[in-house]
Amino acid sequence: MSIATVSYVLNGKRAVSSQVREQVLAASDALGYRVNSAAQTLRRQSSKTVGLCMTTVSTVYLRELANALDEIATENGYELVQVLTRQDPARELARVNSLLSRQVDGIVLLPSLHPQAALEAISRSSAPSVVVDRIGEDDRFSYVIVNNNKAMQDLVRHLMGTEHRRLLFVAQNLDVVTTRHRLAGLEEQARLAGGALRYQAIQRGDDEVAYATRLRHLLEQPDPPTAIIAGNSSVALSTWKALLAAENQQAVAMATFDDPDWADLCQPAMISVRVPFRTFAEATWELLMQQMEGRFDAARTIQIDAGLVVRM
């Protein structure tokens, strides 16, 4: 089979038989080949672009992380190409394949709950890559994550120091690995407290009305939580609106992972867990550049410590 025939199939410029087309596509898939849509990239062997594949940008954490990565990419002469997956594994795979087809120099992936197909596509392409926010068991990849266990333990110790002994942790999704790490930190502090700390963990889900009703019922029980910990800024906003509607926002303290701008407006003052996004993005970029420049020796995991923002 000639080079020209292969080119016709991959670029769709001329009709070929279905048998030939299937043979070419099967071979290209086996090799992990993706069509390079930029002629300039072919000449330079560098597109000066990096792909950022994220689930969504609906929380402060995700927006700030994307902004920090974009700033660092720009400072280093790269363009950040951002795509969203909406937590859909099929869309995630399609977005990753799209980035690979553009011949991006590297990919930063904030994975869905089931990213196996996307990870396999990246691995087969040999594209430099870093997985962020959610650590996995695939040792082919490097990870940059927040030390969520430590962040939760720091937060719980602070709340206990202000006489809060009944806590409610509200997560967007209890199955996410970051949530499991936070729960492990909460459980450890409860163990160390020797029965002096009680807590409950619930999932907000996507139905805010149902969540507001459930929260109101929890606050009406004989020994209600005295402090609520929200898993992200979206959950925090839903919780705050529910407390305002129930007219009992003064009866419970609030803390949240993420540090939304509107937290300063809350009374009682809201405590936030703030991630140093510049540090997080710099660590991610360095791991990516090590691979892109051939300085990479082995996959590794970097944990970034978050800090507490205590408002008076």
Rank of each mutant, 00 (worst) to 15 (best):
I3R: 13
T5L: 14
V6M: 05
L10G: 08
N11A: 07
R14V: 08
R21E: 15
E22G: 09
S28A: 15
A30E: 15
A30G: 03
V35P: 13
A38E: 12
Q40S: 13
R44Y: 11
S46F: 01
S46D: 06
S47H: 03
K48N: 13
C53Y: 00
M54A: 10
T55N: 05
T56R: 14
E64Y: 06
E71C: 10
T74I: 08
L80Y: 01
L84V: 08
D88L: 05
P89I: 01
E92T: 02
E92I: 00
A94W: 03
S98W: 09
S98C: 10
S101D: 06
Q103P: 01
D105H: 10
G106R: 00
L109V: 06
L109M: 00
L110W: 07
H114D: 14
A121F: 11
I122S: 02
I122W: 00
S125W: 01
S125V: 03
D139Y: 07
N147T: 09
A151H: 04
A151V: 07
A151K: 02
Q153V: 03
V156Q: 02
L159T: 04
G161K: 12
T162S: 13
T162L: 12
T162W: 07
E163Y: 10
E163W: 09
R166H: 12
F169S: 02
D175A: 14
V176A: 13
V176Q: 13
V177M: 11
T178E: 08
R180M: 14
R182K: 15
R182P: 08
G185Q: 00
L186F: 04
L192H: 12
A193R: 00
L197T: 08
R198F: 05
A201D: 06
I202L: 13
I202C: 11
D207V: 10
T213R: 15
T213Y: 07
T213C: 09
L218S: 05
L218I: 13
Q221Y: 01
Q221H: 05
P222G: 09
I229W: 05
N232I: 03
S233W: 07
S234Y: 10
S234F: 10
V235M: 03
A236C: 05
A236D: 09
T239P: 04
A242G: 06
E247I: 06
N248M: 14
Q250D: 12
A251T: 12
A251W: 06
V252R: 00
V252N: 02
A253E: 07
M254L: 15
A255R: 00
A255M: 11
T256L: 04
D259W: 02
D259P: 02
D264E: 14
L265R: 11
C266Q: 12
A269D: 05
A269Y: 03
M270D: 04
V273T: 02
F277G: 01
E282F: 00
E282Y: 02
L288I: 09
Q291Y: 10
Q291R: 15
R295Q: 14
R295C: 08
I304P: 11
A306G: 08
G307L: 05
V310F: 07
V310M: 11
